[in-house]
Write a protein that binds this DNA or RNA. Structure first.
Lengths: 187, 187
DNA sequence: CTGCTTTTTTATCATTTGTAAAATTTTTAC
DNA sequence: GTAAAAATTTTACAAATGATAAAAAAGCAG
């Protein structure tokens, strides 16, 4: 997915503002297994995924909680770093070799203060992510494990093809054994 | 909590911008039990809580999921209405008589397009909420019911005093019976 | 205070989900 | 192609949580 489409997908920018935003962006490529963010590091850079898929996970008491997947067109940030300039709680790992657009936090901050359209673009981005996470929190609570898996099959079958089931299970809030059990029952 | 403190708590606005924002705000009072938002209605208005406490809940298959509490200093919106101008998924109900600052969605939208400081204030607001919800989603998954209750006791004991336990249980992602059991064990 | 309503607790039982370990399948590296 | 590693499934058992019903406690109106 190309950078113009990604930017405009968040919020339609005037030509001039889009060019200013793009001026701070460079392309990078990393291998599968590379980490864009590591827990407890501060890094407010921002990435847009041109090609590939990544996962964000937190580490807790011996096991990992995958709480987000990003793929073509998605924006990758370490939320707490980006927002509060504090140590992040997430690791973000490439699950496939990826082509990314990279932007330095500083460039973006400067643009937020200089260009009202870009400020509103940043606002829209955060707002849209907020709705997604809130819906996920609610959905998680009012559906059984089986319903959650079925929902994912219906809405994002591609994810099931591209990501290993251990990560999917964690994302759906269950153990890999549970997911395996559910899949066996649905056969 | 007064309106200047609430506004500045999100993001420090220059004097002139704060006055513009405040110009669109009026004070309202509602009784306990009043609904600020009803599910499936579009209402992008925004409220700030001067005094009182409210809860946001979604209705699903016969039972309610409380997913947010707001109290003094907090901002109340129907997220999906506010962001996408679509029907919201939440009911927001006053749990105490409340004094609120109210702002019409239209005034705010106009200001976002006219004043870069207010646009960044709106951005900061969404970003901060985003971090909170994301942390809650992760926390929910990696702690047991007992740990979640203990955490709430430690971080927000006041909430336990002001809100009935049925709502707290739902907020913590368990049934009221479960919460009662946990409380009995901790005695 | 008294009776009524709402909230919280307690008890029992059923179900779901987790843990651990082994078996199987798939992927990777040489 | 084969061996080694990684991922997935299966099994058995244990623990946590949910559903339901009923009792107890707390809150409220007259």
């Amino acid at each position: 997915m190309d950078i113009d489409a990604i930017i405009d997908n968040v919020y339609l920018l005037p030509e001039k503002s889009r060019e200013r935003l793009k001026a701070g962006i460079s392309e990078v490529t990393y291998a599968r297994g590379h980490f864009l963010f590591k827990v407890n590091k501060i890094s407010s850079d921002i990435y847009f995924i041109k090609k590939g898929i990544v996962r964000a996970y937190a580490e807790t008491a011996g096991n990992e909680v995958t709480f987000w997947f990003g793929k073509e067109g998605d924006t990758v940030i370490s939320m707490k770093s980006y927002v509060h300039d504090q140590k992040g709680y997430e690791n973000i790992e490439l699950l496939e070799p990826c082509e990314l657009y990279q932007m330095k936090a500083e460039s973006l901050r400067r643009l937020f203060n200089e260009d009202i359209h870009i400020a509103n673009w940043g606002r829209k981005f955060a707002e849209q992510e907020l709705v997604k996470v809130e819906e996920r929190l609610i959905f998680r609570q009012c559906r059984t494990a089986t319903e959650r898996y079925k929902e994912l099959m219906a809405t994002d079958p591609e994810l099931l093809q591209r990501v290993q089931l251990g990560h999917i299970a964690s994302y759906l809030g269950m153990t890999q054994v549970s997911l395996s059990r559910i899949r066996a029952e649905l056969k």
